[in-house]
Simulated assay, not measured.
Amino acid sequence: MTSFSTRAIHAGQAPDPTTGAVIPPLYQSTTYAQDGIGGLRNGYEYGRGTNPTRDSLQEQLAALEGGKHAFSFSSGLAAEDALIRGLLAPGDHIVLGNDAYGGTYRLINKVLGKWGITNAAVDMSDAAAVAAAVAAGNTKIVWLETPSNPLMKISDIAATAQAAHDAGAILVVDNTFASPYLQQPLSLGADVVVHSTTKYIGGHSDAVGGAVILNDDAMAEEIGFIQFAVGAVSAPMEAWLTTRGLKTLAVRMDRHSASAMAVAKWLRNQPAVESVLYPGLEEHPGHDLAKAQMKDFGGMVSVTFKGGEAAARKVAESTRLFLLAESLGGVESLMNYPSEMTHASVKGTDLAVPENLLRLSVGLEDIEDLIADLEQALGQL
């Protein structure tokens, strides 16, 4: 099976051998009967270690990202924590973007910093800056978001992978914004892909989860050990819901991308708008690179306002279809004020998000309705 949509529907989804059900059952079980002491049935013993529903999702995730191993976690941050703890030791160093997701920076800087992990935040779209920040022999992970959250910067995955490898480090790519349908980091040289599956992969705002996908057997063994030992696994129901969402990822991302492009083009012509950050626009500095390494440009649009913080807040609190809420990637459109919401943890630091910026997750509603909603909200200024 080489087609993405075919793999999304069939990978890990063989009909139930007992009943022939075309949708594999939800195994809502914490433990499994053994045929004598140590006599496990197909390796199943206890839910923290293995679960058939989670196994199905992990097979699906690996197939869609082109990886050999996949691990499904209880959240995106749980996945990141297990990855870092599995691969690093006190004294190791991480290079990450200076506009990284606030939760990622908080985990690396404030939580793992106490464990002896150090970090440097740089502009990941600047290849020279990345190469300079990667200290040979000390940096163990280069952490990349592309498109970045929420400034929508585009970074060269292949070039960043080369810089990391030249210094003896590995490249981790957070592929949440693009999804595996639009971007395949492992094929471009990345060593590990992480996701908040809560977002586009799940796609319906009803299941929190995270994932790690990779090819290296030794690294996979370390991550698997941490997942089992610490226990931040996705629950069966969340895994089942995420699997369901993945099956429609391709058609959803096509619609998200088309609608986001329409919203971005409309916004850039509005007098109150200072700038529109969307890689699908030709004036975006990363447009050509995004066009080369992505299938399409995704459903996320950020916008800044000439009226500053007051204008951004007014618009965020005036929309009707764009719900003011955390998260992204669901079928419904969401409006987010990152400075006080998703990125509040980096406020006052060098990673602070502009206070006149809003982040839009463009959903699957009719585009005419979405633009009308934005028009009436901007009319409040």
Rank of each mutant, 00 (worst) to 15 (best):
M219L: 14
V276L: 03
G12L: 05
T6Y: 08
H195R: 08
R7P: 00
T19A: 06
L214A: 09
Y32M: 08
A264F: 09
P185K: 03
M237R: 14
A344T: 06
M341K: 09
F177I: 15
S327N: 13
S302E: 07
R48I: 14
R106W: 05
S74W: 00
T304K: 12
Y200A: 15
T104W: 02
A229N: 15
M335L: 13
G116R: 06
Q162L: 13
V212T: 07
A8Y: 10
S5Q: 13
P24Q: 08
A207D: 07
Y46R: 12
T242C: 14
Q293W: 01
E282F: 04
Q60S: 12
T242M: 07
A232H: 14
L324K: 13
R244N: 12
V303K: 08
F322I: 06
I371M: 01
A78E: 06
T6S: 07
G39E: 08
I367E: 09
G379Y: 02
E80V: 08
A129V: 00
G189S: 05
I170V: 13
N98D: 15
T248K: 11
A132C: 02
A262E: 14
A63D: 10
Q227N: 13
A220F: 05
S205D: 15
A33Y: 12
A82Q: 11
T30Y: 08
T349C: 05
M124Y: 00
I154N: 04
E317K: 09
E145L: 12
A190L: 01
D99H: 09
T243P: 00
D123M: 07
V301P: 14
R313L: 12
E317D: 12
D126L: 05
A316G: 03
I9K: 15
G379N: 06
S72C: 13
L241G: 00
D35F: 12
L64F: 07
R320W: 00
A135R: 15
A312T: 06
I223D: 03
D217G: 02
G36S: 11
N215H: 03
E221M: 02
D99T: 10
E65S: 02
